[in-house]
Amino acid sequence: MIAARPSADDAVPAAVVIRGLSHRYGERRALASVDLDVHRGEIFGLLGPNGGGKTTLFKVLATLTPAQEGRVEIFGEDVARAPLAVRRRLGVVFQHPGLDPKLTVEENLRCHAALYGLARSTFRTRSATLLERLGVADRARDRVETLSGGLARRVELAKGLLHGPELLLLDEPSTGLDPGARRDFIDYLVRLRDAEGMTVVLTTHGMEEAERCDRVGFVNRGTLVAVGTPHALKSEIGGDVVVVQTSDPDRLRERIRERFGCEARLVDGALRVELPRGHEFVRAVVDAFPGEITAATFGKPTLEDVFVHLTGHQFWAAEGRESP
């Protein structure tokens, strides 16, 4: 039935198979024939600016938005044809708070358990374990409206995990978390994946979070521009990334080309050069054009650099509008 599957030697279907997925909001194209496979047990990050299409992709995976064109399968089941079967295996944590603030933590979880038809005893043991592990057990009887943003977020995750999903979908999960809590959060996801073999797909525009994913996919202007492990993607950039600030970037770019024979890219008013031994280049370029350079930095390539490398624009500068 399914012809194109990369892990053809594997008898069990992949967690997610997307083929030729396109979506428009009126005239505007949100997704243009996206193909993607997510393997079982991997943590996959969808990375990209807001308005790039990752929210639409998320909503299609969450069975909220039907695919207009193309095919989406989750654990071998067609999302369009068997949404209920797919939903049973999904855990979804939305960006918007999905908890009822007027209910207590426990009441929220109990309500969720009922939506998934969990037996009372299963609910009790699972919710106790999850609240304990996520460090919110002592707040179980408090109303959600009295919780801090970070704590509410953890309860949100507990809710998404309560029914033991095989695929966990997280939309911007670290929004509203401080850096420490963000690290804890990812650590916890990694442990869950290791312990239960759960597959995780998350959207993010946090680079640190993306670095911790097994694989990431860059979504920009409705297409998947690259998919790979963070390491492989960063290796595509030759060595270091040097960013040079100057008052007349066009002129300096010409002169860098004449003098050093390398091509600098103009990104957001600054010149970027990707090359090995960046620290030497920084010194050389400052010595070569005294007084013209206001700042020069070099660093190991990050995923953000990969994004710039692939699209020619800054991550944040690409922010557009995406209808909900």
Binding site: L84, R87, F94, L99, Y116
Partner: peptide, 14 residues
């Protein structure tokens, strides 16, 4: 608006 209903909509119920 708040998001609660989204969570209900993705639950495996008619």
């Amino acid at each position: 608006k708040a998001g609660f209903l989204q969570g209900v909509l993705v639950a495996p119920i008619p």
